[in-house]
Design a protein around this nucleic acid. Structure first.
Length: 234
DNA sequence: GCCCAGGTATAAA
DNA sequence: TTTATACATGGG
């Protein structure tokens, strides 16, 4: 994250951030784990707006929406489309190893500028398939300023969606994921195959329109609940 | 071999 | 505007 490394783990109910310091905690990890938000309060608000979600809200404790880096989130979710998680990880790992900066603890995620200068042949070793040209188009539009991710922290969410979807390979789902995980827009509401199933079975009648400003957090609970009960939502 | 994977672009109805 | 199909790659 932003060139910094830390090992995160849990011990007796405490979350340990190892290999860091107070300065990085305050500047980076506090935001990354969204520690200034009271998620119990957010959960309470969601259940108030939408009581139907009670079971999902109780199905797990400790869910948070991370503040990942905008470009990294955009690129990763482009790679994720019509793909499975082990292969997504592999492609991202190769992307970092091929084009990222080598540090003490591993490779950084490469900048959009770095990827923008890559040819199709150079991207081939990633084995990203048809997504390679999408990665390339995204990198170019970001690095030449046609799409400015950092502006999207405060832009109207509709305008953000329109901007993101100018990129080839970015549709509604990748755009929402970029907004939610990369720009911390907690009102963004990604709908993937699992969400589609859950919303048409267990949670029928629910959509982003009736979930309020924390729709994205609600989405995490619905998503998690549907993966917990795969037969239920099928 | 066949099917599927945290979708999207494109063509056709 | 909505619905169907191809798309690269690799694991089950």
């Amino acid at each position: 994250m932003r060139g910094k490394y830390a090992r995160i783990y849990e011990n007796n109910g405490d979350v340990i951030i190892e290999g860091s310091n107070e300065e990085d905690f305050l500047n980076i990890w506090k935001d990354y784990f969204d520690l200034d938000n009271d998620y119990n309060e957010i959960r309470r608000e969601i259940s108030e707006v939408c009581p139907k979600l009670e079971c999902a809200l109780k199905s797990i404790d400790g869910i948070r929406i991370l503040s990942q880096e905008p470009w990294e989130a955009l690129c990763s979710f482009i790679i994720s489309q019509n793909n499975n998680i082990p292969r997504i990880k592999g492609i991202v790992t190769r992307l970092c190893e091929e084009f990222g900066e080598k540090g003490e603890h591993g490779y950084s995620f490469p900048s959009a500028e770095r990827i923008a200068h890559c040819t199709a042949e150079e991207l081939a070793p990633l084995r990203a398939g048809f997504r390679a040209s999408y990665i390339s188009d995204a990198a170019k539009k970001i690095s030449d300023g046609e799409v400015v991710l950092e502006d999207m922290y405060i832009m109207p969410v509709e305008e953000c969606r329109a901007q993101l979807m100018k990129i080839k390979g970015v549709g509604p789902k990748v755009a929402e994921c970029t907004l939610l995980y990369g720009l911390h827009r907690l009102d963004a509401f990604p709908i993937d195959v699992w969400m589609k199933k859950a919303l048409s079975t267990l949670f029928s009648g629910i959509d982003s329109g009736n979930l309020g400003k924390y729709a994205g957090v609600a989405q995490q609970y619905i998503f998690h609940y549907s993966r917990l009960n795969p037969d239920f939502v099928k």
